[in-house]
């Protein structure tokens, strides 16, 4: 589904250039959940934003569903991936009603009016259809993140990129959102790439985990490795020991 070869990202130019991601390669098969874990600033979110097409500073090849994509995406390529952002307070337009938030993807893509799909989209993420008339500030953080997930699903993408989808939420709400994501994945055969620094989230969700440090992947762990606490690199052991406390 996703195949990335030799992806490098650097910001700035000339002597002040800073290489954030240093030639990483990975692939994700259809229906898999890949986790990327690492400390703040290691480049994990940058990898995700390059995959989404938000960052334009990358070099290398990104192949989505069998076609190489460029920095400018065609509409068909845009339909393939959607993203859920970290902060549900900043990722929904504060002056749009929920109905508009959810109808916008369809309207922007010229795929109809979109209003008729709002109710079903809300129910699918476990929110009452009556929320359509509310503004985002009338919703809690968890409810907003559900709306953001519903919005990402409006165009029926096959790949969802999750940028720390629960780190801005309460612990009790985190579990609800993660379960919702797991259910949706099963129902729709979605492929997830999940970026997080929270190892318990990663262990709960992912089939395979890449450990990232200063722009390179230092370790790859399977689900079994995670359960048995097996690591292949000093850094990932350190990370696991720190979170076990």
């Amino acid at each position: 589904m996703i195949d990335v070869q030799d992806l490098s990202v650097s910001f700035g130019s000339g002597a002040s250039a800073k290489q954030v991601v240093k030639g990483v390669s990975f692939s994700v098969t259809k229906g898999e959940t890949l986790g990327i874990v690492g400390e703040s600033g290691c480049g994990k979110s940058t990898v995700l934003r390059s995959l989404a097409g938000l960052d334009r500073h990358w070099t290398g090849t990104i192949n989505l569903d069998g076609t190489d994509v460029d920095k400018d995406r065609t509409r068909e390529q845009m339909l393939l991936t959607q993203m859920v952002f970290q902060d549900p307070y900043g990722s929904i337009h504060p002056r749009h009603r929920i109905s508009r938030v959810l109808a916008e993807p369809i309207r922007a893509m010229d795929r109809g009016k979109g209003w008729d799909k709002v109710a079903a989209a809300l129910e699918q993420v476990g929110l009452p259809a009556a929320f359509a008339d509310r503004f985002p500030h009338q919703l809690s953080g968890g409810q907003r993140q559900r709306v953001a997930i519903a919005r990402a699903l409006m165009l029926e993408p096959e790949i969802i990129l999750l940028d720390e989808p629960t780190s801005a939420l309460d612990v009790s709400v985190q579990a609800e959102v993660l379960n919702l994501l797991a259910d949706l994945k099963e129902a729709r055969q979605l492929t997830y790439v999940l970026v997080s620094h929270d190892l318990s989230v990663i262990a709960h969700m992912c089939d395979r985990v890449l450990v990232m440090k200063s722009g390179v992947f230092v370790d790859e762990l399977t689900k079994e490795d995670l359960y048995e606490g097996r690591t292949h690199h000093d850094y990932s052991r350190m990370l696991f020991e720190a979170s076990a406390l």
Partner: peptide
């Protein structure tokens, strides 16, 4: 530079749409 504009870019909102429906109202 907000996330909701980034999200709108991801679902293909045209520059005109971004300008008048997302940025101008703010």
């Amino acid at each position: 530079n907000t996330d909701y504009v980034a999200a709108a870019r991801l679902y293909g909102a045209s520059p005109m749409r971004l300008l008048f429906l997302y940025i101008a109202p703010m």
